[in-house]
Structures are given as C-alpha cells and as structure tokens.
Amino acid sequence: MSLSEVIVPHLPFLRRYARALTGTQESGDTYVAAVLESLIANPALISTSKNHPKVTLYHILSKLWGSLKVNLGADTGANTWESRAHAKLAVIPGLPRQVFLLKTLEGFNDGDIARILSKNEADIADAFDEATAQISQMMSGSVMIIEDEPLIALDLEDIVSSLGHSCTGVARTHSEAVKLAAKKKPDLVLSDIQLADGSSGIDAVSDILKSYEVPVIFITAFPERLLTGEKPEPTFLITKPFSPDMVKAMIAQALFFNSGPSA
C-alpha cells in the first residue's frame, strides 16, 4: 500500500483529536500538517513500525505537541474564545489532557496510549485520574440539544444531567433550534447534522452563531464529510455510534475551552 492509502483513513480522526487537544481548528490542523510533513520526510516512520499505523500517527503528533508551541501562541484578543482557551491550557497539564482524550474520545486502550505517549501504563492510569478530577471541577453549564431522534435526544439529556449540567431543551428542526437558542442562550450546543424536516444542523448552528458566540459539538455518522481540511470545520465532533464517555469528554473539552481562566 502507498503512504497515502495507509494514513488517509485515519486523518479525519487525527484532526478531531488535534483540534480537541488545542481548542481550535487552526492550531489542531497545524499539528496534523506537521505530522504529514514528518512522514513525507521519512515515510519509514509508518512502513517500518511494528504498531498499527493509527498508533504511529498519534505518536508522531504527541511528539510534536511536546516540541511545538502552536497551541500556546500569542493571544488574538482579550475576549476571544481562542484567547480564553490559551489561558486555560496553562492550567491543565498536557499529559492528563492527552490521556483523557485518547481514552474517552479516540477509544485507545491503556497499552496503545502508553505507546503513543512513550509512557508506562501506570503513568497513563495516574494521568487519567488527574484529568478526570480536574475536569470534574469545572463550573456547570447549560446545554441545548439539536436532535430529531427521540431516543438519542434522551440519551444525550441523561449524559448532560449526569455531568451536572442543565439541558435548556431539545430542538428537532432548524427553526426550533434558532428560536430555542435565542430564548435560552445556552453555554453549549450539541447538534446532529441531519434534522427531521430535512434541514441541516450545520445551517441551524450557523444562524445561531450570528447572534452570539457559543461552543458547538456536532454529531455525525460521517466525520470524513466534515473533516477534510478544506474549509472552516467543527473543532468538536462526535461520531455515531457514540459512547457516553465520548460525549462526556467532548462536553468537558468544549466547556473547558469556552470558560474563562480560573480565579
């Protein structure tokens, strides 16, 4: 198989991870671009690896995360979402955040995470416990759900409540979503892509964002359609079928990056 055939299937998920880790599409995609540059310079990093190529890709990104400071760049403005993310990144250690995402979002086991991060499994377990404890200390927020499937909506409501957050309501269509957001002003939006009336969750979110800034987590069975690297794309993305841990991880990350610095 060619290098592109080996790595292309994993790129949407590597972008998702990098964006969740850094908090922005721009920073996350910069790290992924650096991974690809490393592979072009040395294709043997993949072809001679004894690990699964996906593990190798995440390992390369991890090494770059530890050496490049894209995520800690200059502030872009005192009140911007990205600026607040940079301030919060200095509070949560990098290793626990990486472990938390790799386990709950990307679904790696402790052994693979240890290989990705060049740590032993005991270190991974300790880092996960630290991340869970710190993220649980976040302030609770209000979450609006845009989802046309009643059972999925109920599952999402239960997950939101279990984390100590409140649900402002569930919208099934574009118009319902825009009206509910205008009325309730949620701290976070969880949105499916395809809605009951044939409208797009992306379009609904786009209209909501015209009124005020709010983090958004998109839910889709086809992440490759959104994570192409060719246009503005979601920083936070959940793939169907999803696990409760995956949703919890993304909600914690989204609210973490949107909240102000700790006092």
Rank of each mutant, 00 (worst) to 15 (best):
M1T: 11
P9L: 03
P12A: 02
R16K: 13
R16H: 02
A18W: 00
A18V: 02
L21W: 05
S27T: 15
G28W: 10
D29M: 09
D29F: 13
E37T: 15
N42T: 14
S49Q: 03
N51L: 09
N51Q: 09
L57Q: 03
H59N: 12
I60Y: 00
K63Q: 12
K69V: 06
K69H: 13
L72P: 00
G77A: 03
N79H: 13
W81K: 11
A87R: 12
K88S: 08
L89K: 08
V91Y: 09
V91P: 00
P96N: 06
R97M: 10
R115P: 01
R115D: 10
L117H: 00
A122N: 07
Q134V: 06
S136T: 06
S142D: 12
D148F: 05
I152R: 06
A153V: 13
E157C: 09
E157Q: 15
V160D: 01
S161R: 14
A171D: 06
L180H: 03
L180D: 01
L180N: 06
A182W: 03
D187C: 09
L190F: 06
D203H: 08
K210Q: 14
Y212Q: 11
I217N: 02
I217H: 05
E230D: 10
T235N: 06
F236R: 09
L237F: 00
K240C: 03
M246G: 04
M246Q: 14
S259R: 12
G260C: 07
